[in-house]
């Protein structure tokens, strides 16, 4: 028996500009991410990975196709409802951390709850801080935390609402390799221990090796998949993406 689908896109296309000058970022993508899985989305620059993520997050409207979150079609929701969706059912981890510089680690983690008009659950925030190994940094401002620590705060913030899916956009892009491994281990643990669903866009084969499966995008299409990836296998595949396109 397989787990229910947390995030699904059907026939997703996104075109920038009109007519002949238009640029196709996504040329029809069908993907489903089951609950409790960790998927890496990879591809060269311009393959449409970032566009895929912004469309899935409801930040950008697809040109055509559907986006389903927790089985619900959210494609045509208005801005107000998509905003609520983002803060209650999607967790974000960005390359640039995106913490608010004037809020402490603890307050940054509680922010999604605040925005929802609720008081943050102190015990839960504490537990998450402990989970990312920052229990003793609760009252520090982002400016006095290292990059790795900031990203761990961002991860705890992404998990605080117990979202349907965590979307990570190059989460280790701004970190050194040792810190990157730490953050990736925590992302992995959120899937294994907490049953979270993580979809991570990356270009780093090492980062991808932490996932259950890798999806390769080339020219806005799904060009291939790889289960139980290793860094070497992913790097090898990335070097020969053209073969995947020919094979298709």
């Amino acid at each position: 028996m397989s787990a229910p689908v947390a995030l699904e896109v059907q026939g997703l296309t996104r075109t920038y500009g009109e007519g002949a000058a238009g640029v196709v970022a996504l040329a029809g993508i069908d993907l489903a991410f089951r609950r409790g899985t960790f998927t890496a989305v990879m591809g060269p620059s311009g393959s449409g990975k970032s566009t895929f993520l912004t469309c899935a997050a409801g930040l950008d409207r697809p040109t055509s196709g559907r986006v389903l979150i927790g089985g619900e079609d959210v494609t045509d929701w208005d801005e107000e409802r998509r905003t609520t969706l983002r803060r209650e059912r999607i967790g974000f981890v960005f390359q640039g951390f995106h913490l608010l510089p004037y809020l402490s680690a603890e307050q940054n983690i509680g922010l999604p709850r605040r925005l929802a008009g609720k008081r943050p659950d102190r015990a839960r925030v504490r537990a998450l801080l402990e989970r990312v190994g920052l229990a003793d940094r609760a009252h520090h401002l982002p400016g006095s935390l290292s990059g790795g620590q900031q990203q761990r705060v961002a991860l705890a913030r992404a998990l605080v609402t117990d979202p349907d899916v965590v979307l990570a956009d190059e989460p280790t892009g701004a970190l050194d390799s040792a810190t990157a491994r730490q953050v990736l281990g925590m992302l992995r643990a959120s899937v294994t221990d907490l049953g979270q669903t993580v979809v991570m866009v990356t270009h780093d084969p090492v980062a991808a090796s932490y996932a259950d499966e890798v999806v390769f995008l080339v020219d806005g299409r799904v060009a291939g998949r790889m289960a139980e990836p290793t860094a070497d296998a992913v790097a090898g595949q990335m070097a020969h993406l053209d073969d995947l396109v020919v094979a298709r």
Partner: peptide
């Protein structure tokens, strides 16, 4: 950019 960041995290324009 900081205000846009808030929007990304799910703050409504009104907030």
């Amino acid at each position: 950019t900081e205000l846009e960041r808030l929007r990304l995290l799910g703050a409504t324009p009104r907030q």
